[in-house]
Design a protein around this nucleic acid. Structure first.
Lengths: 189, 189
DNA sequence: CTGCGAGTATACCGACCGGTATGGTTACGT
DNA sequence: ACGTAACCATACCGGTCGGTATACTCGCAG
């Protein structure tokens, strides 16, 4: 939110693309900068010229991932009329998003590795979780629900819980249950 | 569940204790076996004599963590009479547990690092999430709630969501909101 | 007395870690 | 024609990674 994503050179783009795939798929510490450079068809030198450090590359990976996730949810929501249906559409978007990805929430995963440090990724992760809550709060208000703040918190809880259980719990069916629970929350408000 | 925790030699115990603290606090890949051995006041040789590999030590760390978490929840529940109150007591136990730990769910964190591999920790993590859901299902039945299965899933969603938001989201207050939401679910069943 | 499990101490292995250094080659704008 | 940004290629740095090897001491049970 603070600053837009920087414009990247061609090799810089390939580096960020490769890093994003590798970080999401295998984790941050599991991926070395040598591998990233090789997968991008360039060199470590270029990586450090463009991004300065691995930590900053990691933070950029998450910032771009957040932006893409937001665009994805917004575009899915645009197909749904405002109101309670649009609130629930977020769960459909989540189900679709997770089915394409397979390793769960990249922000939760990243926090598992950098939490408790001063890594530049930490503030990006916190901001993403705050954005999600505000997404629900805005939609709840838009739908004219009573107690939009309380409702938004509950919807957010169900959303994050569904992501975790679908991934670490190995139970993708829970997404439908979360959507049904959210529908109950919305109907009661 | 499959097998009880093995009896450990004195040095083995110190190794598992040191590894548990370090893995939980800093993550799995961030901690090397040399550091674990040093912190345990012993040697890498003894570590490999006792545990065979780092992966097996990681799995054991999670198995013992699960057992201790279960004992903690069970003991807290024993202080509460059976019924709806006991269902909600799990959220109080979670709040107390998390306040002591500070790095969130060790199983979710571990899955962020080993998910998508054949690491022996994966099945331990899945079993832990299944245990949590069954905990809620058992308590819901004990309390005579209608649709105990559906209720258990919703309580589990709120539980995992609260853990994630309190940790990665940096918002510990959400635990009270999750408890209140759970109370609403219980009251409606 | 012997054998064995447990532990200590140290050295080593190849591989990889994040990061730096040097030097050279394009392509483009002024 | 010149500067410069972008990129490539390669070699190197100290340090750590998971894991193995060798050789030793101790206490205990047969």
């Amino acid at each position: 939110m603070l600053e837009p994503l920087p414009v990247l050179t061609p090799a810089g783009t390939r580096l960020l693309d490769a890093a994003s795939t590798l970080f999401y798929e295998h984790g941050i510490r599991a991926v070395g900068v040598d591998l990233i450079a090789e997968r991008a068809g360039t060199t470590k030198k270029t990586l450090y010229d463009r991004f300065g450090s691995k930590d900053r590359l990691v933070a950029l990976y998450l910032r771009r991932r957040a932006q893409r996730m937001h665009e994805f949810v917004d575009s899915r929501n645009a197909d749904v009329p405002p109101g309670p249906a649009r609130v629930l559409a977020v769960y459909d978007a989540l189900a679709e998003w997770l089915s394409m990805q397979g390793r769960g929430c990249g922000f939760v995963n990243a926090y598992a590795e950098v939490g408790g440090t001063d890594h530049p990724a930490v503030e990006v992760i916190r901001a993403e979780k705050a954005w999600t809550r505000e997404l629900f709060a805005g939609l709840a208000r838009e739908a004219g629900l009573a107690e939009p703040d309380r409702v938004a918190t509950e919807l957010h809880l169900l959303y994050e819980g569904a992501t975790v259980i679908a991934t670490a719990g190995g139970d993708p069916d829970v997404l439908a249950a979360a959507r049904a629970a959210a529908a109950r929350v919305v109907a009661g408000a």
